[in-house]
Design a protein around this nucleic acid. Structure first.
Lengths: 336, 336
DNA sequence: TTGTAAGCGTTATCAA
DNA sequence: TTGATAACGCTTACAA
């Protein structure tokens, strides 16, 4: 290996000359096509390794049908969630020789569709992965369909039998958590719901209500508060709930930022956690898990959802994969 | 605008025909070159708009000297930090017709240099932006230099007069915070330092010590603990500090995750915040600010650092920009 | 199983 | 100030 090999950028022509074969044969080996003799294949592989050759994305995209690029289109959710999804998708792409283009955007902006159209044209996208609430954006989905770009959705509000997706059962998660609280002896369970901007909110509320009904516990509307998926709204809701004549003995917040807010407010109001109050969260983000140990959470396997979505997209499958959530009880894990 | 215009991908040839000029002239207009008559320029612009034409990145990269792509290379810092930096850099790139390629990596991995070399070759990078601790990685920086790829650093440990960078004065931030605590009457101030993996840790400690010295307060080694920049190590350090015969009346944690840990431990040990204990943090991530209101922090203007680094890189300047930090006192802001 | 030729959409070069 | 023509590095189509 000469000193140059670290600096020189070799081409497919260099490789073909070094291996004594045609450029097309090198291309065949690179793309794993059939009809290459073991002998030539070996020679090519050796030359590729020796020259430290790597194909140009630009040339491949221009000449071929595929660009080996897919986009991850997301609307500014929690940074923890976004980073996890991004890392997961990127890892799977890299494994298969693809590159991921991160495309943050605002679902509510009037220009989203144009922005994504520009991306498709300029980057010659092979596919896309959508997270909520972009996965609910009709304009974006129509564009993708019109352009013939395959896509997969992560935790979409509605399963679409024609579109690949990876998700957990939101309602069942909330049901399981509520049932868990009931099994601990709680009868008076507060619920902090999420904003209507996300379709998951209604599902989580439904799960909570289903568990209560299944246990024969009457629904008490004063125990249900609407939040905004953020810390402040969780605090606010907790203040109201804990000020009730008969305060709840447990509060289930349907996001972890809100659960953290509930905990902070409980501390502030001198309510002992977990002795006088159990706090539970629905964890989209891993945030509460990091910051606030004394918490029971329903965890979405975020990384795994990303893997699944990427795998579906790259393999061209159009399945709706349902994954399991985890119920993590800190009390038993004993991390605090 | 026909129905087709939303679906058709037009080329520079289509535009040249529509405008009645040569392809080269269209190219000149697109790239803002001189020597194009106002008349033709106008015709071309009109045709571009009418056809909704957007140049192909792949073709530009292949034919031209520039790929209009830069990489953001970062090693898994806090998700909040990463998302902010990414959003900032991406925004500036988009403004100037560039694309940002996010490249997470591990500074300690033996393959980082190869991974980045692959990226340079395959994507034909025009430049890169490095965050700590990649900005301290000699192998990576040597590679970039050898390949002739310009780069900018965000908050590097050492300013390099040859390399563009955007940063705040870490030592001065820690000094300012410590001086602030002293001005509130504190004399007994605990310090939780960061890991030696980041060169900033030593600087923050130095700032803390400088402020104490300036106020004529003797250094007490038992008040200084080493942490790991995470929640757990902050809790641990706080537990030790608050168990001292004479516990500190204020604790300054040099990261916000650690500050959150300090706060949680104070609550757990029944130490009233902020009455019996002031807690201060150095905020790289916005995390504690979101989750833990009763906190005084030194905030890095993360978004602005990203803007500055991107602007420097894209304009080809080799300056070392120093930005101001903010001292945010929650008590006065009154957010809790 | 292998190779030849053409062309992808743009910019660089050089001539007009 | 404009425009022909030849690259750029690869894959497609087709031939051998």
């Amino acid at each position: 290996m000469t000193a140059n090999s670290k600096t020189a950028k070799s081409t497919i022509g260099d490789v073909s000359r070094a291996a004594g074969v045609s450029e097309k044969t090198v291309s065949r080996v690179l793309n794993g096509e059939r009809y290459v003799s073991a002998d030539l294949r070996h020679k090519v592989e050796e030359a590729v390794a020796r020259l430290d050759y790597r194909p140009s994305f630009a040339a491949r995209a221009l000449a071929g049908k595929r660009s080996y690029q897919i986009a991850l289109i997301f609307d500014n959710p929690s940074p923890y969630f976004a980073q996890n999804i991004q890392a997961g998708v990127m890892a799977r792409c890299a494994q298969q020789g693809y590159r991921m283009i991160a495309q943050p955007c605002e679902a509510a902006s009037p220009t989203v569709v144009d922005e994504i159209a520009a991306l498709i044209d300029q980057a010659q996208l092979d596919g896309a992965i959508l997270t909520a609430p972009i996965s609910e954006h009709d304009g974006v989905r129509a564009l993708l369909r019109a352009r013939g770009i395959p896509y997969a959705m992560i935790s979409p509000a509605q399963l679409d039998p024609e579109v690949a997706s990876a998700s957990i059962d939101q309602a069942d998660g909330a049901r399981a958590m509520t049932a868990h609280l009931i099994s601990l002896g709680h009868r008076n369970i507060g619920f902090v719901g999420g904003s209507e901007r996300f379709a998951t909110s209604a599902k989580r509320l439904a799960g909570y209500q289903a568990a209560l009904a299944a246990a024969g516990i009457g629904a008490d509307p004063s125990l249900i508060r609407e939040g905004d998926y953020d810390f402040a709204s969780g605090s606010r809701a907790a203040e109201e709930l804990l000020s009730l004549a008969v305060p709840p003995s447990a509060i289930f917040a349907s996001s972890d930022d809100m659960a953290a807010g509930v905990l902070a407010m409980a501390h502030k109001m001198g309510v002992a956690v977990p002795d006088a109050l159990s706090v539970a969260g629905f964890d989209d983000t891993d945030l509460a898990a990091v910051v606030w140990p004394p918490l029971t959470t329903i965890r979405q396997p975020v990384r795994e959802l990303a893997y699944a979505a990427a795998d579906l997209l790259l393999s061209g499958k159009t399945e709706q994969v349902q994954m399991d959530f985890e119920l993590i009880s800190r009390a038993s894990v004993g991390r605090g």
